[in-house]
């Protein structure tokens, strides 16, 4: 059932798509039928693969950089009270600026290549990771901190042995959100200005009325996002082995 269920959901969605195409009689350049998108995908797979590589690289680099920076920032904020007082307002204000609005500026500063898209993805990932991890670090069970103090633990030792592991479930939530939004950052960056990537391919094929290719690119992007999410989710569940899934299966 674990393998079967996603296949059924997938098949049902494709069928729904086909039914909408039939029922509405919509032109293929507005909504191409699934078969046509499938053919476009098979015929142009080399092009799609090339652009997929670029986008995947952007997403992974953004995810890596955003996570590392977010983790370091959260630890810094949790450990130094002064940093907390001065940096927290800046962090919150920075989030009031819509990250999408920064895309043209990033392209202007960092060019049409990989760097501006990685920066975009990093920016979009950074905040959920920082906020979630910092929140987790602040919410350590007070009794455990008391216990550690009576055991003569140093602040650093408490952070390393108790506060960080205790904050990992919160960090994992942040990372899951980050994984889900990372492709958005990369694609928005590509739309603003690029010469490669699935976002670029979508704009490019749209301009040439190759709507089936556009959909094939969109479909690939969706598949990447889903695979990425479930990979990260599986990895996190493994690392957080002590966290039982408390939602009962019959709930």
């Amino acid at each position: 059932m674990r393998v079967l269920r996603p296949s059924i959901i997938f098949a049902a969605l494709i069928m729904l798509w086909q039914i909408i195409v039939w029922a509405s009689g919509v032109e293929p350049f507005i909504l191409p039928p699934p078969a046509r998108v499938g053919i476009a995908w098979v015929e142009r797979w080399d092009v799609i693969l090339f652009h997929t590589q670029t986008t995947v690289l952007e997403i992974l680099l953004g995810l890596l950089l955003g996570t590392v920076m977010g983790t370091v920032s959260a630890l810094f904020l949790a450990y130094f009270a002064t940093a907390r007082r001065w940096l927290m307002p800046i962090l919150v204000i920075s989030q009031a600026i819509p990250v999408f609005a920064l895309a043209p500026i990033l392209v202007l500063w960092l060019g049409y290549g990989l760097a501006s898209k990685v920066a975009m993805a990093t920016l979009i990932i950074y905040f959920p990771v920082t906020a979630a991890f910092f929140d987790g670090l602040r919410r350590t069970e007070p009794g455990q901190l008391d216990l550690a103090r009576t055991m003569n633990a140093s602040r650093w030792s408490i952070l390393r042995n108790i506060r960080i592991p205790a904050a990992l479930p919160a960090f994992a939530s942040g990372l899951r959100v980050a994984t889900a939004v990372a492709p958005i950052g990369a694609v928005v960056g590509e739309w603003v200005g690029s010469s490669a990537g699935l976002g670029y391919l979508m704009l490019h094929s749209n301009g040439r009325m190759q709507i089936d290719v556009m959909f094939a690119a969109l479909f690939t992007l969706g598949a990447i996002a889903v695979v990425l999410y479930f990979t990260v989710d599986a990895f996190l569940s493994r690392v957080l082995f002590w966290q039982p899934d408390t939602q009962p299966s019959n709930d």
Partner: peptide, 26 residues
């Protein structure tokens, strides 16, 4: 110190919880 809750760390095995003081003191 011993509190109302057991305060065992859920990610450590029972024996690692027992030796927690040593771990915390390096």
């Amino acid at each position: 110190y011993m509190g109302q809750q057991d305060l065992l760390l859920p990610w450590l095995s029972v024996i690692d919880n027992v030796t927690l003081g040593r771990r915390l003191r390096g």
